[in-house]
């Protein structure tokens, strides 16, 4: 398997949030603004990649029976490091995300990738897998956050120097979108949308297969 397909798989067919429905807590909690979503997405990208590298390096020295506690300790160490770095260099991000950064430790997706991928593969593919999964996670987070922030406040990256006004200044959006219920509603509708797309694709694929079969039958008929 080449590296590009390993990377791509995390973004599309195995997207952690929309496809696997793993690690939903942060997807709901910190997507009220794009800034927070981006900060969280990049932190998770860093943790998942670093964890995959470390796990694939130590995999031959860990007794399979105690692997889960070992993995959790590795993840907790990496998360602590990331938090200390953020606290020192990006205090704004640290202040906004606070508790949710600490809870990266228990994200199912990180442990799942260590268990499913890094445990069985070499360092380089594991790193690429981590990058792909992390990128898929970050993209999904930003995607949700864009919808919520634009509908709720009418702008993207509000409160930072990069603020972009999408709707006119007078737009008085429904506050609910950036409050808790909005998160549930947006994600519910998005899951529905992805299901619709998948259904359409399956239908198209079935149609294609059917015509191909018919063509084959016609060809055989001609040959016979």
């Amino acid at each position: 398997m080449n590296y590009w397909s390993i990377f791509k798989k995390g973004i599309f067919e195995m997207n952690p949030i929309f496809r696997l429905a793993l690690s939903l807590c942060p997807a709901l909690a910190v997507t009220s603004t794009v800034f927070n979503a981006l900060g969280m997405g990049l932190s998770v990208l860093a943790v998942i990649t670093a964890n995959n590298i470390v796990v694939s390096l130590v995999k031959n020295y860990v007794n399979p029976k105690v692997r889960v506690p070992v993995f959790i300790t590795i993840i907790a160490t990496i998360v602590t490091l990331i938090i200390l770095i953020l606290e020192a260099y990006f205090p704004a991000v640290y202040k906004e995300l606070g508790l949710y950064l600490e809870l990266i430790v228990v994200f199912a997706i990180i442990l799942a990738r260590a268990e499913v991928f890094a445990m069985k593969n070499d360092v380089l593919p594991s790193a690429v897998d981590g990058l792909g999964m992390g990128a898929g996670f970050a993209l999904a987070m930003v995607f949700i956050a864009v919808i919520r922030e634009v509908l709720g406040t009418g702008m993207i990256l509000g409160g930072t120097s990069l603020a972009i006004q999408i709707f006119p200044q007078a737009y008085d959006g429904p506050m609910i979108m950036i409050l808790a219920p909005g998160a549930f509603l947006v994600i519910g509708l998005m899951i529905g949308m992805f299901n619709l797309i998948a259904e359409y694709q399956n239908k198209q694929a079935a149609l294609k297969a059917k015509t191909a079969c018919q063509q084959l039958a016609v060809q055989r008929g001609e040959a016979g």
């Binding site: 808790a180 219920p181 549930f184 519910g188 899951i191 529905g192 949308m193 299901n195």
Partner: peptide
């Protein structure tokens, strides 16, 4: 329930309604 919302989709929307009332 509409077919594409069955399962997780509708569960999230219901949780949204529940969150709305807790608000």
């Amino acid at each position: 329930v509409p077919k594409s919302l069955q399962g997780m989709g509708i569960a999230f929307i219901i949780a949204g309604m529940l969150a709305l009332s807790f608000l």
